[in-house]
Design a protein around this nucleic acid. Structure first.
Lengths: 147, 147
DNA sequence: TTGAAGTATATTGCACGCAATTCAATTGAG
DNA sequence: CTCAATTGAATTGCGTGCAATATACTTCAA
């Protein structure tokens, strides 16, 4: 018996659907934790970068987050409206916009410090399995990106 | 030395970011393959279900896809406009909407048959690793869903 | 020096996800 | 039997993702 191609067109067998569902479900878990900070999950990702590197431009932020200006520009304007970042054109090169963490944005970091551990506990999986999951995701991303 | 909570607030260490990036990147790979079929990735997921079960209602479809009516109603209207499904109110219970695969929708299945294998090849990862990745995602989803 | 190519960000448009609300139909307790 | 509670879809509103395009600025070669 040669298996039909058909056999692979089943939702439950598709890696991508599992990845897609787990990713959305995990973001939903973050939502509850981020609500007190008035952050969405993608906004939280941007803040993670800024907490490590309090100033960088949109292009560099986009490369770290794998997002383009079409996504980042409105997202960063919302963070600016909330007072967590400032956006200023570079004097040297008027095309570049510097994103800077504000004091208020810096203060948020303390409120977020418990989140990684909380999520880890909610996952209920052993650390080793989560690390391997992360590793496989990173590898998959690299492979597809390299095409 | 006790590690600071701070140490976990690093983008590159976060499983969720890896999952989030890999998921979006994989959907992007599907996009190219689905363009000839005039389907988006979530629409493709709905078609996968219908190819196995040519008629079901919105609620059951939503449970399979982990999506609610706010997402599905407009998505299904688009599939209806393309002629791939029909939407009809149940006679027995006027609240229920039956989604049915059309002949044209059935024909799409043949055009999609190559996709799973193509994606597998593009991933460049061994089947075993992909299966384990899928398994961990499924487990993670279950754990978070159970809370 | 000047204009063509390249670059960084912004804008537009479309399709999700999903919370919150609405609405009509159905069910079920008293 | 009746009306309050429940249910299945639809609607509304907001924030992404991302392709495509636009715009302003910069660089670079002839």
């Amino acid at each position: 018996m040669i298996p039909e191609n058909d056999d692979y067109l089943v939702l439950e067998k598709q890696l991508c659907f599992s990845l897609y569902s787990a990713s959305h479900r995990l973001v939903r878990s973050y939502r509850l934790l981020l609500e007190p900070l008035d952050l969405t999950y993608p906004q939280y990702l941007a803040m993670l970068v800024l907490w490590q590197q309090p100033e960088l431009n949109v292009k560099d932020l986009g490369e770290k987050l794998h997002l383009d200006s079409g996504t980042l520009t409105p997202l960063l304007k919302r963070l600016e409206n909330k007072g967590f970042v400032s956006r200023t054109r570079s004097q040297q090169d008027e095309r570049v916009v510097h994103i800077r963490l504000t004091e208020q944005g810096q203060l948020l970091k303390a409120q977020a410090s418990h989140i990684p551990k909380t999520i880890f506990q909610q996952s209920g999986l052993p650390l080793e399995q989560l690390q391997q999951l992360k590793h496989s995701c990173d590898l998959l991303f690299q492979q597809l990106e390299a095409l």
